[in-house]
Amino acid sequence: MSADAVQEKIKELEERLAKVEGNRSNMTMVLFSGDFDKAMAAFIIANGALAMGKEVTIFVTFWGLDVLKKPTMTGAGKNVLEKMVTMMRPKGPSKLPTSKMNFAGIGPKLFHYMMGKKNVTSLQNLVDTAVEFGVRIVACQMSMDVMGIRKEDLMDGIEFGGVAAFLGSAFDSNTTLFI
């Protein structure tokens, strides 16, 4: 290999390395679950990653949308099935069931109490902090359409998008999680 060719190769490798290192800062999650405990895990990891200087995107789809709902969300102006789904699903971080030991809604109260005793910050606080400090939350538009969830039914400060929004962010990340 000639000296020029070696220089050329070094330049090419440096450019590729810069690209790889540049991507190191990103983390992308899918929050599919609307369970309190799983949402806790997602938002603790998101806030932790933020503290470690990463850019974080959470793509929120299907049951995960329950986490983003405003407690004031209503079924007004929606069709019968949409009204039913609106009525039957919890609205917001404080209303979510636990994935284990839910005991018809007693479980979450128990865990809120136990977490409070140990000074674990609330899910609502973790969500608010994440948004305040720049975690990008993208709500799945298709799931919203299916379940009759309108933009104004969800918390402020979030974006709306589809699978490409998730993938675009995931391809630029070195950590991806499905929760």
């Binding site: 603790i44 806030n47 932790g48 503290a51 000074n119 910050t121």
Partner: peptide, 9 residues
């Protein structure tokens, strides 16, 4: 008095 992830945050 704080629990994970608050101290590091």
């Amino acid at each position: 008095g704080m629990s994970c992830p608050m101290p590091i945050m």
